[in-house]
């Protein structure tokens, strides 16, 4: 019987090796190991064996079963692998064909600039506030130390609707409104972005509508050096860590002392070029210490509180940062312009 079993094993293994399909392997499995299979048939004859021979033959039979089973499994796996490889080969596609297009929209360049500035100041503890674009004469001028007859509030410079209402000429009225809301009691830091309007004829550098962002910090013991430090942080974040800032004395009715801030020209690194008109510096924003009359009208005691304020034009910043050479580009909305900057 032993010889019979060994012959059976050799025969099975040879058939398995020669097989090329999974289906045939299944047939082989049935032919040898199935209920009516050869091995089962041989084992059925075990009953005729002696008590001593039975375990020996039994063990050989088990070996044969294991050998056939293992061979079957190995061959199956090999064939499956081959089949999978063939399938994958057939599934190969042309990866150089384009993908399904996704419609690409995006923000306006000015929105990006404004958000960048907002986020930068939010990081320094500022809140963002908004105000009406149609303002009262009081908030646009009077509360900012620009009484009637002040030369800086020429009727020719503003779009009046009635004697008392006009399109705001700056976002500063939001400063006055915020001070009033906080009732002269609470220290605060805020910035206010928004649209403003002036009587300018639209050309490459003027627009009757433009954007402004102003900031205001009111507290006890606010120093001018705090303004300088804050603006320096802003300028370095916005224009690069290697930029230097310079403050120059200036004049605004709502601040005293007043400053204008320049940054060192990136084009020539401060050596002087056509962009900076040879000075090495580029004017970025204006600001100063809040005028005591403005604090007072806002309800803050100028003997106790002080503050600083600053204001800048996102259009100008965008023009400097991205080399936009005509302010009208921002409002013409030519798709070819918008697409250049929506990732900015």
């Amino acid at each position: 019987m032993k010889e019979q079993l060994e012959a059976l094993q050799a025969d099975a293994l040879q058939r398995i090796a020669a097989t090329e399909t999974i289906r045939e392997l299944q047939d082989i499995k049935v032919a040898y190991l199935g209920k009516k299979g050869s091995l089962t048939g041989v084992l059925r004859g075990m009953g005729k064996l002696s008590k001593e021979e039975r375990p020996v033959v039994g063990e050989i039979a088990n070996h044969v079963r294991t050998a056939i089973t293992t061979a079957l499994e190995e061959k199956t796996e090999k064939l499956e692998q081959a089949e999978l490889e063939k399938q994958l080969e057939e599934e190969t596609i042309d990866v150089t064909l384009p993908g399904r297009p996704v419609k690409v929209g995006g923000p306006h360049l000015l929105t990006n600039i404004v958000q960048e500035i907002e986020d930068l100041f939010i990081g320094m503890g500022y809140e963002v506030r908004e105000g009406p674009e149609v303002e009262t004469d009081y908030f646009n001028f009077e509360a900012l130390n620009l009484p009637k007859n002040h030369p800086a509030r020429d009727m020719q410079d503003s779009f009046y609707i009635t004697n008392e209402l006009l399109l705001r000429t700056h976002t500063s009225p939001v400063q006055a409104r915020t001070m009033q809301e906080y009732n002269g009691e609470k220290p605060f830091k805020m910035i206010c972005p928004g649209k403003v309007y002036r009587r300018d004829t639209d050309d490459a550098t003027h627009s009757h509508q433009f954007t402004q962002i102003e900031g205001l910090y009111v507290d006890k013991n606010v120093r001018m050096s705090d303004l300088k430090g804050t603006l320096d942080k802003f300028a370095k974040k916005m224009f690069g860590e290697d930029r230097e800032i310079r403050l120059r004395p200036s004049f605004f009715p709502f601040t005293e002392p007043s400053v204008e801030m320049d940054i060192s020209c990136k084009v020539c690194d401060g050596k002087g070029c056509s962009v900076c008109k040879g000075t090495g510096w580029i004017e970025i924003l204006g600001g100063g210490m809040v005028h005591p009359k403005v604090l007072e009208m806002g309800g803050y005691d100028p003997e106790v509180y002080s503050g600083f304020a600053f204001g800048m034009g996102p259009e100008r910043i965008a023009m400097l940062k991205y080399g936009v050479n005509d302010i009208r580009n921002f409002y013409a909305n030519d798709i070819r312009f918008l697409k250049q900057y929506h990732k900015a």
């Binding site: 100041f121 300088k228 430090g229 320096d232």
Partner: peptide, 14 residues
Amino acid sequence: LPFTLPEGAGQSGG
């Protein structure tokens, strides 16, 4: 003028 940052009690912006 030196460069300093406000020393007032911190506020949460946002």
